[in-house]
């Protein structure tokens, strides 16, 4: 039994169906990627899982128990933590205070029984934003704010971590470190479910990937299978901007008459002229 099961969830806004019979899950100790074009319903799925959006139909289960109608804060007490695509840091507070708030909330009435979350500064250190500890959260760079949201989640020692585009705003080194951190968390037994546009990261760290299109899961599997799945390529990688540049340009160019083939020896010169190389997805 998976830690998280999303079972035939449908979400309709007025007449528009944002999520259509989506079924997928996440296992403890693994990293699961949720990818798909814009408007495919990924964030809506996260809202349904975390309790901010009630589905029109379908069920969400944690440890086999339905939580579909459970309010947000009680799901959190059951170990669901999430970050936001559009940031939700507490802007008037410093970075350290942000995490303290999370720790205070997590402690709650059961604070005495439960492990009171890690020490705040150690958490900031762990996600790599200790240098910003005394900055106000509305004055830090986006990437840092995303890491802050992660640190805030971790203060509650979640069992299921929902990360909505966590790496956008991070540079390459930071992204690599972030990938390490995710691996680390998974090996601690946390189930990580992540919506992410950086294909290198997704392909690199995920154990399983679900592809969402028009609110429906069109493919699930290991990164290697997803990469070669013709359905995914057709519906997603080749035509939408959601893929990392590498994949999408590959797919784009594959359809064009052959041009001067890649010569990796030129890489260095060319990137100085056209520094697209590190132009990672920033959305």
């Amino acid at each position: 039994m998976s830690l998280l099961e999303v079972d035939h969830v449908v979400v309709q806004f007025g007449g528009v169906t944002a999520v259509n019979e989506a079924t997928f899950g996440a296992e403890a100790g693994t990293i699961t990627g949720l990818i798909g074009p814009n408007g495919a319903g990924k964030t809506t799925c996260f809202n349904v899982i975390s309790g901010l959006q009630r589905p029109t139909r379908g069920q969400v289960r944690l440890d086999g128990r339905a939580v579909t109608r459970m309010p947000v804060h009680r799901r959190s007490k059951r170990g669901v933590g999430r970050t936001f695509q559009r940031l939700e840091a507490f802007g008037s507070l410093t970075v350290r205070e942000n995490v303290r708030v999370a720790r205070d909330i997590a402690g709650g009435a059961r604070g005495l029984v439960r492990r009171s979350g890690a020490d705040v500064d150690a958490l900031l250190e762990r996600v790599g934003i200790a240098a910003y500890a005394d900055e106000r959260a509305d004055s830090i760079p986006t990437g840092t704010a995303r890491l802050l949201e992660l640190a805030r989640c971790l203060a509650g020692s979640p069992r299921l971590l929902l990360l909505d585009e966590p790496s956008s705003g991070l540079d390459e080194t930071e992204t690599d470190a972030f990938g390490e951190l995710l691996r680390d968390l998974a090996s601690d037994g946390v189930a990580v479910l992540m919506v992410e546009h950086d294909m290198d990261l997704v392909m690199g760290v995920c154990d399983t990937i679900h592809v969402l299109d028009f609110g429906t899961v069109i493919a699930s599997g290991e990164p290697a299978d997803i990469r070669t799945d013709p359905l995914v390529q057709k519906a997603y990688l080749g035509y939408s901007d959601e893929g990392g540049e590498g994949d999408s340009w590959d797919a784009t160019l594959a359809d064009l008459p052959p041009v001067a083939h890649l010569d990796r020896g030129h890489e260095d010169d060319l990137t100085t002229v056209l520094p697209i190389a590190d132009g990672r997805s920033a959305r």
């Binding site: 947000v72 804060h73 840091a89 507490f90 008037s92 942000n98 303290r100």
Partner: peptide, 24 residues
């Protein structure tokens, strides 16, 4: 104190407080 921080946090982002486990 703790409550003051919570108050400010709740004013800044009720949604985040909810997902962190606070019954706003």
């Amino acid at each position: 104190g703790v409550l003051g921080r919570l108050l400010i946090a709740l004013r800044d982002s009720p949604a985040a407080c909810g997902t962190l486990g606070l019954d706003a």
